[in-house]
């Protein structure tokens, strides 16, 4: 079949080659995590943090990401028919999000006069869009590889000039980034405002209970619970 007219995306998108690349990427992510865990455990003693605390940190991170991960899964499966499984795994599993990748693919398809999933969404358009998405996503990694050593040197210099910088800047940047990202959600619709308020309120209540009664596991699961309640409420507001 002519790739310029065939809309049978899956025969291309499910090719063993793409599966191998997707699995390789996931394998490298696991390898990196394993190396990092070992390095952190080796440094822990000297820095004055116990192995128990480090293991607790690993578990907390894993538990806290269950909610967000399941939410990402729900969004990712909606893209399966458009891109096939390995491409979705590679694009959502790596730097990028469902929104970014959908937008990128739409823009790329548009340059060929096609629309996402439309009758002109042919094998040819898919391959071009996939290429553009991968190359665009690569930019984040290239910039990180280039800039991180430079930024690290700058940070070292700053902390030598005034050690107080390192006690203020990371926390300030963290608060700023999340408040900015949250504020950007607010003008989108009043349901977005409700989602922010509900999930924030659930988190505040759960953290108050967890601190008062000293329930460790609740601090870990609070994020997942807040997301579920947030989506639950917005479901009824949106469809109700």
């Amino acid at each position: 079949m002519d790739p310029a007219t065939s809309t049978d995306i899956w025969s291309v998108a499910q090719s063993p080659l793409l599966w191998i690349c997707a699995l390789a990427v996931f394998g490298i992510i696991c390898l990196q995590s394993w190396i990092y865990v070992r390095a952190a455990k080796r440094a822990g003693e000297g820095v004055g943090i116990s192995r128990g605390d480090l293991n607790r940190a690993f578990r907390s991170g894993a538990v806290a990401s269950v909610g967000p991960s399941l939410a990402v899964v729900l969004v990712a499966i909606a893209l399966l028919t458009l891109f096939g499984t390995p491409a979705v795994l590679m694009r959502i599993g790596l730097v990028g999000s469902a929104a970014t990748e959908t937008a990128s693919a739409t823009i790329a398809a548009d340059t060929m006069g096609a629309s996402l999933g439309g009758p002109e969404w042919t094998q040819q358009v898919f391959v071009v869009a996939f290429f553009a998405m991968c190359l665009s996503g690569a930019a984040w990694m290239v910039i990180t590889l280039l800039f991180t050593p430079l930024l690290k040197r700058g940070g070292n210099k700053l902390s030598r000039v005034n050690p107080a910088a390192m006690t203020i800047i990371p926390g300030a940047a963290l608060l700023a980034a999340f408040m900015a990202l949250t504020a950007m959600e607010l003008p989108k619709s009043w349901i977005h405002v409700i989602a922010v308020l509900v999930s924030g309120a659930v988190m505040a209540v759960l953290m108050a209970i967890a601190t008062k009664l000293n329930i460790g596991w609740l601090k870990e699961w609070a994020l997942g619970l807040a997301i579920i309640v947030g989506l639950f409420v917005t479901y009824f507001v949106h469809h109700g």
Binding site: P68, L74, T182, E185, S199, A201, V202, I227, L231
Partner: peptide, 12 residues
């Protein structure tokens, strides 16, 4: 999930 995943995570 598509529409409100981000605000539901960020608020918390």
């Amino acid at each position: 999930a598509q529409l409100y995943i981000l605000p539901s995570i960020l608020g918390a």
